[in-house]
Design a protein around this nucleic acid. Structure first.
Lengths: 229, 229
DNA sequence: GCAAAAGTGTTTAATATACACCCATGA
DNA sequence: TCATGGGTGTATATTAAACACTTTTGC
């Protein structure tokens, strides 16, 4: 089938930078490419936009097709339109970043990708296209955003300890935080629900579990409160 | 000439939300459309992406063609990809927002647009496509960003008084600020250069002029300082 | 009983806020 | 001389930062 236009058009793709937290390590999900260009090279999951499909849907569909991930937190990151970022032709990509907690979502490699795997942020190899740059932009955005929007909870299991939360922040912000001050601050915000449960299977005193109370948070932001760590 | 592809492609455009400050009023630059759809309707300046042209260049080129504005501060805002946002077909638009100071840039209507004009933000009429929504997104971004990145200076003349700066912030943040506290805070940041000049042609005591010292600011941000008003 | 992490308060410094008057200038 | 905005300081409240020990639990 052929599709003809009076003017040449750049192609459009959507790519996803998927962050996951695994035993306190921040990782990113990559796929190994099946086809040219960059065959065999690691890359961000993503693919071509379809006509009639919202661009975010493109991102979600490709993510599901290539990695099996569904229903994740997804937010638009930036649109990269350099005409030489794809050696074949002018391809504009709308990049998204996603946050998942690894315990709740299992990844299965699928048709388009020979393989999908989690990489430690520091150990990411040379990627296809300008994907290293996109990843870098995503890391910056994550660091910038996590300080004043409580998106960090997307990376944790539904029930978590304050230590897990603190370690997450320390990992992303790349500095240590004072335990007492951290707890004081986050609890005072009143966006966590204290559960009647404690962690299990730990070789020391078990910590209380908490969950993020989105309803409280939404109510507070409406009233002009701002989260800021 | 015809251009043929094996898969259908959405079209891509770039649109600009241009903010300008005029006698302490925040305005946005609109053009009146010459062609269908939405002929005669007011819209954001913008147009179709060319193959081989970086998408930001599309935005700059269209802005210059339609309004005569060149060399302005331009930053990517968001990409809108709803398949029904253009009644003709699926058009993805990469929206940018621009800041200009009206004194330094003159606007001349040009080929594509029958007319270009500045509108008070509050008086913007029903626009073509989803441009009202894009404008709204841009306003939010401007408000959010101006508090922690000193982009406000782009809206002012090179030399300005502290009153002008404060009024700008009050306009955008939509609340009054205490004069003494504002001056203390902004001067303590040490990103303004105090000039040996005062304003002229005012019917009261003339205020000292300042200019934004980008070099100082860049040096400070590198050292991990953060502007925050 | 010891290793490992949970949990908890206070002091001090820094920052934000609230607030009012005299001064210079041009009309 | 009056109207208009320029320019300035201090006291108080709030928030951030620094800091160490006791408790619980599993091994």
């Amino acid at each position: 089938m052929k599709y003809t236009y009076t003017h040449p058009r750049p192609a459009v793709t959507a790519d996803c930078v998927v962050f996951g937290l695994d035993d306190e390590d921040l990782k990113v999900l990559l796929i190994q490419r099946d086809n040219a260009p960059f065959e065999g090279c690691w890359a961000l999951p993503g693919g071509f936009a379809r006509v009639g499909e919202a661009i975010e849907e493109t991102a979600r569909r490709e993510l599901a097709e290539e990695t099996g991930l569904k229903g994740v937190f997804l937010e638009q990151l930036y649109t990269f339109g350099d005409p030489h970022r794809d050696p074949r032709e002018h391809v504009i990509t709308v990049a998204y970043f996603a946050l998942v907690n690894l315990a709740a979502h299992t990844v299965r490699p699928d048709t388009d990708a020979r393989n999908a795997a989690w990489f430690e942020i520091e150990d990411v190899p040379e990627l296809a296209f300008d994907h290293n740059r996109i990843l870098q932009t995503a890391c910056q955005r994550l660091r910038g955003k996590i300080r004043y929007v409580p998106i960090g909870f997307e990376l944790l299991p539904r029930k978590f300890t304050l230590r897990q939360l603190q370690q997450l922040y320390e990992k992303i912000l790349d500095r240590t935080l004072d335990k007492r001050n951290f707890r004081k601050k986050i609890l005072k915000m009143d966006i966590l629900a204290e559960l009647d449960e404690i962690e299990t299977d730990v070789a020391h005193r078990a910590a209380r579990l908490y969950s993020f109370d989105k309803r409280k948070y939404d109510r507070m932001t409406e009233e002009g409160f701002n989260f800021e760590l």
